[in-house]
C-alpha cells in the first residue's frame, strides 16, 4: 500500500482500489435501497388493489401505528428485551460455568452432557406449558424458557473452545509447572474466547426467540405486557396494523442484539483473531 502512494499505480491497481471503495459504500447502500424498494412495492400493492387495512395495512399505516401506539408498544418492547437479555446473561453464566466444569472433569461431562442435549433438542414450546404450571412467578417462567433455548450454543461452543488448546502451548505450561487453575485462566479461557463469542451471537438471537415463544405459551394469563402478548391481543381484536408494528419491533430488537454482540466480538478479538482481521490484499 505504501508503494502505491509513492509511485503511480498501474491501471489494474486503480481498478482494484475503485472496486474496493465501491464495495464499501455498497455494503451500506444496497440493503437500504432494497428495503426501501420492498416498502415501496408493498405500499403500491396495498394502494392499487385497495386492500383494507384490517387485511393488509400499508407500511405508512404501520409506521403511524408504531408512533401512535408507542405508549403500549414501547413498554412491551422493553419487557421483551429485558427478558431476552436476562436470559442471555443467565445462559452465559450457566453455559460457561458448565463448560468449565466439563473441561475440569471428564466424568462430569460424560454424566451431564446428555441432559444438556435432551434439553436442547426438546422444543421449548413443548416444555413451556409445564414450566408455567410449576413456576408460579411469570417472569421467572419466561426467563427459564428463554434460557433453555439460549444456553446450549454457549455451552457447546465454549466446551469446544476449552478443548481446542494448542498442544505445544499446553506442554509448555506443564514444563513451566502451571497449576490447573493457571492453565484454565491463562490458556484455556483465552483459547475458548473466539468460540464462546460465536456461541454468544447465536444465543443472543435465540434468547429473543425463547422470550417471544414463551410469552405466546404463557398467553393472556396473568398480566402479560411483552411484545408477543401485544401481538396476541391485537390479533384477537383484528388490529392488524398493531400486529405488524409489534412484529417490526421484534425484528429490530433481533437485529440490534446481533449488531451489539457482533461489535463486542469484534472489539474483543480485533488484535489477534483471524475472524476479526481486515482482509489484506
Amino acid at each position: 500500500m505504501t508503494e502505491a502512494r509513492t509511485q503511480i499505480p498501474d491501471a489494474e491497481e486503480i481498478a482494484r482500489l475503485r472496486r474496493a471503495r465501491a464495495e464499501k459504500t455498497g455494503r451500506w447502500l444496497m440493503p437500504l435501497l432494497t428495503i426501501a424498494l420492498a416498502l415501496a412495492i408493498w405500499d403500491r400493492i396495498v394502494v392499487w388493489n385497495e386492500i383494507p387495512h384490517y387485511i393488509l395495512p400499508g407500511p405508512g399505516l404501520v409506521a403511524r401505528t408504531l408512533v401512535e401506539d408507542w405508549a403500549i408498544l414501547g413498554p412491551a418492547t422493553w419487557v421483551t428485551l429485558k427478558i431476552a437479555m436476562m436470559a442471555l446473561v443467565v445462559a452465559v453464566i450457566g453455559g460457561v460455568s458448565l463448560a468449565v466444569l466439563f473441561s475440569l472433569s471428564r466424568w462430569a461431562e460424560m454424566s451431564f452432557y446428555p441432559f444438556a442435549v435432551i434439553l436442547q433438542v426438546t422444543p421449548v414450546v413443548a416444555i413451556a406449558p409445564l414450566i408455567f404450571i410449576y413456576v408460579e412467578n411469570r417472569t421467572i417462567g419466561l426467563l427459564l424458557c428463554a434460557w433453555i433455548v439460549a444456553f446450549f450454543p454457549i455451552l457447546s461452543n465454549t466446551s469446544l473452545g476449552l478443548r481446542s488448546v494448542d498442544r505445544n502451548l499446553a506442554d509448555l505450561y506443564r514444563i513451566y509447572g502451571a497449576s490447573r487453575w493457571q492453565r484454565l485462566i491463562h490458556l484455556q479461557l483465552p483459547s475458548a474466547l473466539p468460540y464462546f463469542l460465536g456461541g454468544l451471537r447465536i444465543a443472543g438471537g435465540l434468547s429473543l426467540i425463547g422470550a417471544v415463544v414463551a410469552e405466546y405459551v404463557a398467553g393472556t394469563a396473568g398480566i402479560g405486557t411483552g411484545l408477543a402478548f401485544r401481538i396476541l391481543e391485537a390479533g384477537y381484536r383484528l388490529n392488524i396494523p398493531r400486529m405488524f408494528a409489534a412484529l417490526v419491533l421484534i425484528a429490530v430488537l433481533g437485529v440490534l442484539i446481533f449488531a451489539v454482540l457482533s461489535l463486542i466480538s469484534h472489539l474483543a478479538l480485533r488484535h489477534w483473531h483471524e475472524s476479526a482481521l481486515k482482509k489484506e490484499s
Binding site: 505450561y173 513451566y176 491463562h186 483465552p190
Partner: peptide
C-alpha cells in the same frame, strides 16, 4: 518448539513473561 507456540491473544512482552508469570 518447531512452531513458535505463542499465545496469539497476548503481546510479545506478555508471551515472554509467561514462564515468570506462572511462577
Amino acid at each position: 518448539f518447531q512452531e513458535p507456540t505463542l499465545m496469539p491473544w497476548a503481546t510479545v512482552e506478555k508471551n515472554v513473561w509467561l514462564p515468570l508469570r506462572l511462577r
